[in-house]
């Protein structure tokens, strides 16, 4: 089996160690005996969403985000179809803003985005930076991560997370992120698949099953990752009942 991962804007949206997510997917898929191809894609490239089994896009500076958007918006219909076809898409950090209707900049300019979903992003004039602990109904284990953003989103229909600690979609929000079919979007930055091995395992399994329903899985090796995850929660969030 060959699985092709499209890594969108690896050289523009790579602000917070996002490449960790690609490393995680690659290694875990390979451990299952899958041939993995990573397509490093950027604004000089033609995108072909028929060719990818999994697409990843991460966080960037506001400026780099706009450079990427100018290129990505040409593919808005392809992206919509890709997501409706149940294919896998992971968006972390401020790249989640690209999938709404528009971004309302802090000088009140409306920047048109992909329009995959109906939400809008409002850019604040203060930066929201905090640790995060979230819960998703699909998983027993809480998600840990970090947020570092100017944007807030207040009208997501299909939130991915319940906020236990952190900024969430906006200060004092109770939910965060979006999960629609196999599209997962979150403001959490950086290597969230590394820090949340349960999520990594889930995605690896699902993407393989989407190609072969009878696939026989080998045992996953996620020992370091799992201990790092539980250590973090025990040391810093032991008061949270999970």
């Amino acid at each position: 089996m060959i699985i092709t991962i499209g890594y969108l804007y690896y050289d523009l949206l790579n602000l917070y160690g996002e490449n960790g997510n690609i490393k995680a997917l690659k290694k875990q898929l390979e451990d299952q005996g899958i041939n993995v191809t990573i397509k490093f894609l950027t604004i000089d490239d033609d995108l072909d969403f028929n060719k990818y089994d999994f697409v990843y896009i991460g966080a960037g500076t506001e400026n780099n985000q706009k450079i990427a958007l100018k290129h990505l918006i040409k593919y808005k219909n392809d992206i919509k179809k890709y997501i409706e076809d149940n294919k896998f898409f992971l968006s972390t950090g401020n790249s989640i803003e690209l999938f709404g209707k528009h971004i309302l900049d802090n000088n009140k300019t409306k920047i048109k985005t992909l329009g995959t979903f109906k939400y809008q992003t409002i850019i604040e004039d203060f930066r929201m930076i905090d640790e995060a602990v979230f819960k998703a109904s699909l998983f027993d284990e809480p998600f840990i991560g970090f947020q570092n953003q100017y944007g807030v989103i207040k009208d997501i229909q299909e939130p991915f997370f319940k906020v236990i600690k952190g900024v969430g979609s906006y200060p004092n929000s109770t939910t965060e992120g979006i999960n629609y079919k196999n599209f997962y979007g979150t403001y959490l930055i950086g290597p969230i698949l590394i820090r949340n091995p349960h999520f990594l395992k889930h995605l690896v399994k699902e993407v393989i099953l989407s190609k072969d329903k009878k696939f026989k899985f080998k045992k996953f090796n996620l020992n370091f990752e799992t201990t790092a995850h539980s250590n973090f929660l025990e040391r810093h969030y032991s008061e949270i009942s999970i």
Partner: peptide
């Protein structure tokens, strides 16, 4: 006291 680990991947 903000524990961000993303830099390890840079």
């Amino acid at each position: 006291d903000l524990k961000d680990l993303s830099w390890l991947w840079d």
